[in-house]
Design a protein around this nucleic acid. Structure first.
Length: 343
DNA sequence: GACACGTGGGA
DNA sequence: TTCCCAAGTGT
């Protein structure tokens, strides 16, 4: 298997991605941050968040000392907000337990909340050159094709099978530089060559020994996952407005949009409210039809976990995407109203 | 093992 | 439009 390793390393150095913001550092804090942001999230979505986040929280100490509200505000719009809550906890753990220094032992790294085995190995390999492999979606797809496995991506049993193979591909005497190139290389391969659709086998460095390629199965593997039907839910979001201010409620820590600020939710229409246009927000596991209700003539029902915010301040808080969208709509309406009043 | 957890890109 | 799903982890 060592040949595979060398081929990926050489390919990455010649053809892999260069100059991504997190490729320009060996600081485990920055590498950890990038790995968490990149979980289930595309590179193009991450770059701006990563740079802004680092400006605000340049060190693990800065992050550990920040409030969870500040952290969520900088995560707002990225999704999977448990990552931000775990990131904050993990930063405090690094400061308290590891004296502010990220350990190089993947097992210790994996003890941090939000850091699983693959992310732990990525941090160890990139930061310290520890000779451990990653096993992310790219690698799974690559291995399913390379080994000609008649499977879809996913499942505990598959991971149990693939981990030892992934480990065997990494020579114990690989250098730090090689580990960086290999780890980046398997992901670049998945993104640029062994893509989900239209794999580029003609430029693949390991096509000669790829089972799927020899069987002309590169377009069929991995097998498609059985699809599940997503249900549609409806939510009435109540926008209590008092002049320039709107009322936001802090959501419970667990569940959808945990820890974020949102509009109070009702199960049905409220009297004396103005209906704003309905829109659909799509999650991976369900659809949400959102009916925003504007309420200007009565106070919020429940004032326990809420606060009044100026419109422009609300946009700087940790709010989920649909809430941001509604706030922007309200702000635009107010702007229109002001312009009309002047004329 | 199955499911919850966001959002936007690409076909 | 509709569907799949991306540098996964936690429960």
């Amino acid at each position: 298997m060592e040949r595979f390793f060398q081929q990926i390393v050489e390919w990455q150095l010649a053809n892999g991605r260069k100059g991504l913001p997190w490729q320009e550092t060996a600081d485990p804090y920055r590498i950890w941050l990038s790995e968490i942001m990149l979980q289930q999230t595309q590179v193009s979505s991450v770059i701006a968040y990563y740079q802004k986040f680092l400006q605000t929280f340049p060190t693990v100490y800065a992050l550990a000392n920040a409030s969870i509200d500040e952290v969520l505000a900088h995560w707002s719009g990225l999704g999977y907000y448990a990552r931000a809550r775990n990131l904050h906890k993990a930063a405090q753990m690094v400061v308290d337990t590891f004296d502010g220094k990220f350990p190089s032992d993947p097992n210790l790294l994996a003890s941090l909340p939000g850091v699983g085995q693959s992310t732990a190995n990525a941090i160890a390999a990139f930061s310290y050159g520890v000779t451990v492999p990653i096993l992310d979606g790219n690698v799974k797809r690559l291995m399913i094709r390379y080994l000609g496995l008649q499977e879809s991506v996913g499942g505990t049993a598959q991971e149990k099978k693939l981990w030892p193979i992934a480990i065997n591909q990494v020579p114990a005497d690989a250098t730090h530089r090689e580990m960086i190139a290999y780890t980046q290389g398997v992901m670049d391969m998945g993104n640029l060559v062994c893509k989900r659709t239209k794999p580029q086998c003609q430029v693949c460095p390991v096509a000669a020994s790829c089972q799927a390629y020899h069987a002309n199965q590169q377009d069929e593997l991995p097998l498609p996952k059985p699809k599940k039907t997503v249900q549609t839910k409806r939510a009435y979001l109540c926008i209590y407005q008092n002049k320039d201010q709107i009322w936001l409620e802090k959501r419970p820590d667990s569940g959808i949009w945990g820890g974020l600020w949102s509009f109070p939710e009702e199960v049905d229409v409220i009297e004396a409210s103005i209906n704003l246009p309905v829109f659909t927000h799509v999650f991976t596991h369900f659809k949400l039809e959102i009916s925003p209700l504007l309420i200007t003539n009565m106070p919020p029902k429940n004032t326990e976990n809420g606060n009044w915010f100026l419109l422009e301040d609300a946009l700087t808080q940790g709010v989920p995407q649909p809430v941001r969208r509604i706030i922007e709509t309200i702000a635009a309406m107010q702007q229109d109203y002001r312009l009309q009043s002047q004329n």
